[in-house]
Amino acid sequence: MKTVVSCKHLNKIYRQGQIEVKALTDINLDVIAGDFICLSGPSGSGKSTLLNMIGGLDSPTSGEIIVDGQHVDKMSKSELAELRLHKIGFVFQAYNLIPVLTAKENVEMVMQMQGDSKQYRNEHSLAILKEVGLEGLENRKPAELSGGQQQRVAVARAIVDKPCLVLADEPTANLDSKNADNLLQMMREMGEQHQMTFIVSTHDPMVMERARRLIKLHDGKIIENNKQH
C-alpha cells in the first residue's frame, strides 16, 4: 500500500531564552493511505507539534517529513501553501471557520482558491454539507451554529476537495460526548467513503477506540504504535 506520510528521525526543539524544550525526539512514523490514526497522549506530549509539522505549519529542527512523496521539510513557504491547499485538510479544536463567511462559503473557499467553477463549487459544497448532516444550515454564519455543527462544517471543508490527508487536532475537545461521538463516526465514514487518510490527535478515550491505529506519545517520544482493528 502507498505511504502517505513518512517521518524519519524527526526532532523539534523549542528555545525560549536560555531554556530548551524538546518537543519531539526521534520520531519515526509511516502512515499508509486510507488509514485512520489516533495520536494520543497527555497535553504537552507533542501531538499538536507533530501534526503541525506534518502539515507544514511548523518546521522540524532535524529529520525529514515526506507527505505524498514530497519533502515537506525542504519546501518554501509558498510550496507549503500549495501543498496544504491541494493535499491536506485541517480540522482544529476551535476557531476553525472564517467568521465572516457562511457555512457554505467556508466550504467553498478552498475550492475557489483552486479555481473551480462556480457551478461546481455550488453543487459540491451543498452535497458535502448534506453528507455531514447540515442540510438547510448552509447559509448560517459560524456564530449561528452550535459547536458540533461548526466542527462538521470544518470537516466538510477539510474533505471537500478530496485531499489525501486530513489532520485533525483535538477536534472533539470542545464537544459533549454525544456530539463528539457523532463527529467521529462521521469522520470515519467519510474517510472510508472518500479513501482519505485521517490523523486525529486526542486524549479522549472514545476517539482512541474509533481509530484503526493508535499511536501514543509521551514527552515527545512514540511509546506505543498499535494497529487496532
Binding site: K77, A81, R84, I88, I98
Partner: peptide
C-alpha cells in the same frame, strides 16, 4: 488565529 487558519488552509502569505 484567523490568519493562521488561512495559512493552514493553504492560502499563501
Amino acid at each position: 488565529r484567523e490568519f493562521g487558519l488561512f495559512q493552514s488552509l493553504g492560502l499563501k502569505p
